[in-house]
Write a protein that binds this DNA or RNA. Structure first.
Lengths: 243, 243
DNA sequence: TGAGACGTTGCGGGATCCCGCAGAAAAAAT
DNA sequence: ATTTTTTCTGCGGGATCCCGCAACGTCTCA
């Protein structure tokens, strides 16, 4: 059994390596990659390897890497080991995990024991392990309670990219008015909406940009999510006829 | 001589602690704080301590902490030890460093030796040390060459917060038209501007939000900068009369 | 089958944004 | 002190955004 570490911080890498050796005596080889790109390559070479990876790396981010790895070999077991439980990350991960896959998500702030337990659970016992904090995020994210539907999240990303209503309508196959309806929903859920009569708040805020701002502040969006969305957008733009 | 470490990652904290002991034999005590708040408190208690700190910590971010520490004792020597050289961070730091202060900025990706050299240079030889990469950022940031003026950066932050033209005009004591002029400048410099006749690009982008998007993608803005700006904004809003 | 909930679409209008134009004011250069 | 350059400002108009209103579809549930 081999384990592949994808993590750009050398300190964390060596710590992980040690933790793996300690927690998994049956492991007979630890590979290390310091960014998503070489991680993907190593995963391709060592087909049976289990993977522990960081999200947010400088070169090629973790979610992208995980996506391509899972696309090539959906039964790969991946433990995400991240500093943050931003909704953007959690949503990004749960969007790409294949049906029935075994994976985990533990925070770097977790204790040594918890990490080792997670390693054994996932790689030996085939059981998913998601940190409570992350799990909470997931609930909030997927359950409708105070959470966002896929449609709302989608349009949030679209305006964050700077698209116009019309462009969004084209991209999502909607009428302009529907786009605006969804925007209104979004504004309400983000607590940005201004009731018409409410004079306690003059027109200080541009709803569209304000929505993006609070989404960032609430970590509903982050740099990584934006980068991925921008990449998706550019392939769509390229496919679009020049009218 | 004492050294205070402000850093939320325990691994990095212990690594730093060791590096300090090795590089500074004259140091007879290392204090550790795991977030900006307790860091400020410890700095207040140990008035003569030198400081090594991370930017981006969960609780209270590094720049805020540095600002209050320097406000209370401007001659404090601080070494910023950070993962990133985002323009937003570099600009944030150089905005708060007091005149004549001795400080440093080295990346976590730097070698062991470079870190130790920086420690000695700053704390013993009273000499500033800024990583080449960071220095490059500074140049680009302050020099006009392909960089942004203070005014442009300011208005970028304002629209990123979601303010309307009118609100910005109020806040910055400008006419609405001037605000729009500055916005135009910003759009041009960000490469977002659409020349009127240019038909290769229909109205796909909302310039205002697009500008924010590319600023984030280029790391001209980041989550930290937004948070600080939001805090500043809210104190301004509180001071504002309810019209 | 009909009532109700929900998402989509068109219309219309007021507010805001984007920006060319041109004069006034300020700053910098000569 | 005068010219040059830059910035600020008002005006105006077209494009976009924000959103109430109302009609239409789909889907569910009784």
């Amino acid at each position: 059994m081999k384990v592949l570490i994808i993590e750009d911080d050398p300190l964390h890498r060596s710590y992980l390596s040690e933790a793996i050796r300690a927690a998994l005596p049956e492991c007979d080889g630890v590979l290390e990659a310091e960014n998503g790109g070489t991680g993907e390559r190593l995963a391709r070479d060592w087909k049976s390897a289990h993977i522990v990876m960081d999200l947010q790396m400088g070169q090629r981010n973790g979610i992208e890497a995980a996506r391509t790895i899972w696309k090539e070999r959906p039964e790969t077991r991946i433990l995400f080991w991240s500093n943050y439980s931003d909704e953007a990350y959690v949503r990004g991960v749960s969007r790409i995990v294949p049906a029935g896959a075994v994976y985990g998500y533990v925070l770097k702030s977790a204790s040594d024991d918890r990490l080792k337990l997670a390693l054994r659970s996932i790689f030996i016992e085939s059981q998913c392990v998601i940190d409570r904090e992350v799990r909470g995020m997931q609930q909030k994210s997927l359950g409708n309670t105070n959470g966002f539907t896929e449609a709302e999240y989608e349009i949030l990303v679209d305006i964050a990219l700077g698209l116009t209503d019309r462009a969004i309508a084209n991209r999502r196959n909607l009428s302009v008015r529907s786009v605006q309806n969804r925007l209104q929903q979004l504004y309400i859920k983000l607590g940005v909406y201004q009731p018409i009569g409410g004079q306690d708040d003059d027109g200080r805020f541009n709803l569209r940009t304000r929505a993006v701002a609070v989404a960032f502040l609430r970590k509903l969006l982050n740099h990584n999510a934006l980068e991925r969305a921008e990449a998706d957008l550019s392939v769509w733009l390229a496919r679009q006829p020049h009218d």
